[in-house]
Design a protein around this nucleic acid. Structure first.
Lengths: 157, 157
DNA sequence: AGTGAAAAAGCATGCCC
DNA sequence: GGGCATGCTTTTTCACT
């Protein structure tokens, strides 16, 4: 939760993170050329970022609509007074339809990012959400279009 | 938007995608061993998935709180009757605080996923959102905790 | 589509500045 | 913290099944 254990990142570190965000498969030599450093120096920096927990891992970006999961939605959940938040997250995250789960301060209590095949599937998924917790109400926002990305903070930490 | 141009993915393709989702830096030989195929065969499948647009790219997962951007929120936006949706997305996506933007069917009109340094920064960011469009109202959900991940569809497309 | 092997590219390490 | 040189691993390509 705090800043980096030892030191704050410098401009080069942030540049490297941005390059990896764009394409995590960039070679060290490619990155090295762009930040005007040697491959060894870049590798040491990346290792340090990984060690410090700034870099959590690497993943592939997939076009889910190409896989037939073309419908995206957000469902706002409200619970009875004392519902265990961990329990919500635990059961929800096991659903293959859940992309992400956010517990919220205030109203609603949680926000679930869903990805499903079609509207019928969405209906079933929402029903499942309602059943699996002590839900008092849900509201589902159906996504028409989305944009994801965003740069890294250009200024320091 | 439709399924894969040529053919549907088989179980091995989905297994490879899942392995890459867990860790996009796995070597071909590592993947090959897990799916009991040769590295060359795995490479051709991955190349084909990329060619087909199923694989969009590779990215790094970062612990934003370690970078000092520890506050996450969703802001629901409502606009005047005829506001150009593209315009909303265009201007919002230029903000470094915007992680993602979703246009929504119904109410609200859009959902913006924000990541900011602190509450003061959140306030400024929401103000900016309100100013930059013909916004009639906003509602911001502050994230207490989040979980992201989720498996790939285990069944075929 | 898959395999196996050779060539090319990239990575990892040790040593020095 | 950075660079260079070197041995090792991985990727990439190709001929063959």
């Amino acid at each position: 939760m705090a800043a980096m254990s030892d030191e704050t990142l410098d401009a080069t570190d942030r540049e490297i993170l941005e390059l990896l965000r764009e394409d995590a498969r960039r070679t060290l030599s490619d990155i090295a050329a762009r930040v005007t450093l040697s491959t060894a120096a870049v590798k040491r920096r990346i290792d340090r970022l990984q060690e410090a927990g700034v870099i959590l891992g690497y993943t592939v970006r997939v076009d889910h609509s190409k896989l037939g999961w073309g419908v995206e939605a957000f469902t706002e959940l409200r619970f009875f007074g004392t519902t265990n938040v961990d329990e919500i997250v635990q059961t929800t995250t096991r659903m293959p339809e859940a992309q992400a789960v956010f517990t919220i301060a205030g109203d609603p209590d949680a926000l679930v990012w869903l990805r499903v095949r079609d509207m019928a599937h969405l209906q079933r998924t929402i029903d499942e959400l309602r059943r699996s917790h002590r839900v008092t109400s849900t509201k589902t926002l159906i996504v028409l279009d989305s944009w994801a990305g965003g740069e890294y903070p250009p200024d320091g930490a």
